[in-house]
Design a protein around this nucleic acid. Sequence first.
DNA 1: CTGTATGCAAAGGTTTTGCATCGGG
DNA 2: CCCGATGCAAAACCTTTGCATACAG
Lengths: 142, 142
Amino acid sequence: MDKKKIVFRRLKDEGFKITPQRAAIIDFLLDNGNHPSAEEIYKGIKTEYPMVSFSTVYNTLRVLERIGFIKSLNITENRVNFDPETYPHHHLYCERCGRIVDVQLDADISLLKNNTVKVNSYRIYLYGICLDCLRKEREKTV
Amino acid sequence: MDKKKIVFRRLKDEGFKITPQRAAIIDFLLDNGNHPSAEEIYKGIKTEYPMVSFSTVYNTLRVLERIGFIKSLNITENRVNFDPETYPHHHLYCERCGRIVDVQLDADISLLKNNTVKVNSYRIYLYGICLDCLRKEREKTV
DNA sequence: CTGTATGCAAAGGTTTTGCATCGGG
DNA sequence: CCCGATGCAAAACCTTTGCATACAG
């Protein structure tokens, strides 16, 4: 996988060390394809890679966020999920199955005249039903 | 304040009791004008109204959310803030002072063709600098 | 009166921290 | 070699829960 090399290089460039633990976390994020929480990453790696601790997972996630490889999602309450940034997209939280799925949006957002604030970034969180759950629903009603 | 009566009526209609604690929380939310967390509400009421507990605050917030008087905000990590819903608006988190300020947006959001999901609701969170902090910055540089 | 709401304290879940040790560059 | 990274366990933080009591309707 090429993305991995890019991340490694960026880590080096920013003065961060590349440790086996960090490599495992990066692999997991790239292979997994969804939006794991810190705990899911920890458990996912632990099985085939037991020498990882929670503090290392959190430390690495913070580092990966700082170099711009991942973004954190506050789409659910009281738990942060992490999103490997691969292409521009937003997210939908499925109220049926609880998964977070990628969604591509046409978003045209502009401040109304009186809002004199400076916007550096923004996040759009959708809530609804994902494709899989919609399919299951259709099958039921047939 | 008239809004208060409306909330009281809605509580009654939905079969919830109106207790002094709940009244105090509603007052605080209406008078305060910003977006307090559960803890801020608890502390804000406690001073002039000592007979309130954390569980009551959380219980009441859940009730107020259910009747549609407040909405929860996940704009910051690991802490939920509550927003008395008075008029349609979105929110900006000020990365300077940490406050959450109301912002009115023209938001035109549409799913791209391939996204076959069902959207029930969405949230837009802006991150940047609020008006007050922009002003302070300007004064400094002069 | 009746059942919901409250207060308290304890538990639950997630994230952070302190510190000694390890190991990547 | 050195300094940052790790692991462990404990702490911090926010929220929920269980249960006996209080009180709104």
